[in-house]
């Protein structure tokens, strides 16, 4: 596993840490009360749904030996069920529990 190349990992973590801090600090510290342009605010508003969807989809379709967009993809089926629960309950815990149980059940059944 590349993760054992530890100097590189520390550099990566340091870089993400500094970058993340600057993102957090940007408007609070540097710009103070300066107005954030409306265009920037509108763009930023779509970062969470877009970035999270970009992470979810490959995780359901293409990880490991997953067969992609078919009925035999148990991760996809379990994920869709979990999405329904997420939508109904808004609970992280219930979403994860449903998805994992559904995956285990499907694998046990078939």
């Amino acid at each position: 596993m590349i993760a054992s190349q530890s100097t590189g990992v520390w550099l990566l973590l340091g870089a993400v840490g500094v970058g993340t801090y600057l993102i957090r600090y940007s408007f609070i510290g540097i710009l103070g009360r300066a107005e954030v342009s409306e265009r920037v605010q509108r763009l930023l508003r779509y970062v969470p749904p877009a970035a999270l969807a970009a992470l979810v989809v490959p995780g359901l379709l293409f990880r490991g030996d997953n067969p992609g967009l078919t009925i035999h993809n148990y991760r996809l089926l379990a994920g869709l069920l979990a999405a329904t629960v997420a939508w109904k309950t808004r609970s992280i815990l219930a979403t994860i529990a449903t998805g994992m149980s559904a995956l285990w059940l499907l694998q046990w059944l078939f």
Partner: peptide
């Protein structure tokens, strides 16, 4: 598999209206 599920649990409440839904669909 809990990793994409966690992202899913965060994604769903971030979809607040038609446009954020379209953003999620486009990215997906």
């Amino acid at each position: 598999f809990a990793v994409p599920l966690t992202f899913m649990a965060l994604l769903v409440p971030s979809i607040k209206d038609r446009n954020s839904m379209l953003a999620a669909l486009g990215a997906g």
